[in-house]
């Protein structure tokens, strides 16, 4: 007997892997790189059935992003912020599964702001003041794209 949720899980896994590769290869373009990281943390990682899997993917995204930026402190601040935001998104999905697109956009926008603040607080805690950049703005502006994609192509498994 086959697992009915196996195929979406595999697709989610492959898409998360593609996001990791994209984060790595998008290092010369910090804006798209931040969008890919946000998509992985807020769009894909919370959708896994286990929160442990989700935060592992989020941590991996944070470490890959820090590893690609030469002038960025490699102390895990981004991974830590990713994991906390992913846990928050996971609990929100459990408590209030999304039913329509626009409320989901609003929730993702709030999570993007929280994610940005958490990451920068963590990085500041670990390594001191640093440049913020415009990646958060890219993530906010492109919410209609990546959030719609996350909900349409890969709805959270908890929703099914």
């Amino acid at each position: 007997m086959t697992n009915p949720s196996g195929a979406p899980l595999v697709r989610r896994f492959l898409l998360a892997l593609l996001c990791l590769g994209g984060i790595h290869y998008a290092a010369p373009w910090p804006g798209p790189q931040a969008v890919l990281n946000t998509f992985l943390v807020l769009g894909l990682a919370p959708g896994f059935r286990s929160p442990l899997s989700g935060i592992l993917w989020a941590a991996a995204g944070g470490w890959v992003l820090e590893g690609t930026l030469r002038l960025y402190p490699h102390l895990g601040g981004t991974a830590f912020g990713n994991m906390l935001t992913c846990l928050l998104a996971f609990s929100l999905l459990l408590r209030w599964p999304p039913h329509s697109l626009k409320p989901y956009w609003g929730r993702q926008a709030a999570l993007v702001v929280i994610h940005t603040l958490l990451v920068h607080v963590s990085v500041r805690f670990a390594a001191g003041p640093h440049a913020w950049g415009t990646g958060w703005l890219w993530s906010l502006v492109l919410i209609p794209v990546w959030a719609t994609l996350a909900l349409r192509l890969h709805p959270p498994l908890h929703r099914k």
Binding site: I55, A59, L75, G76, A79, F125, A126, A127, G128
Partner: peptide, 16 residues
Amino acid sequence: MAILLLGHLLWMALGR
């Protein structure tokens, strides 16, 4: 998950 989070927190704290 707790070990993962606390490990990162410890790593960040030690790296300061």
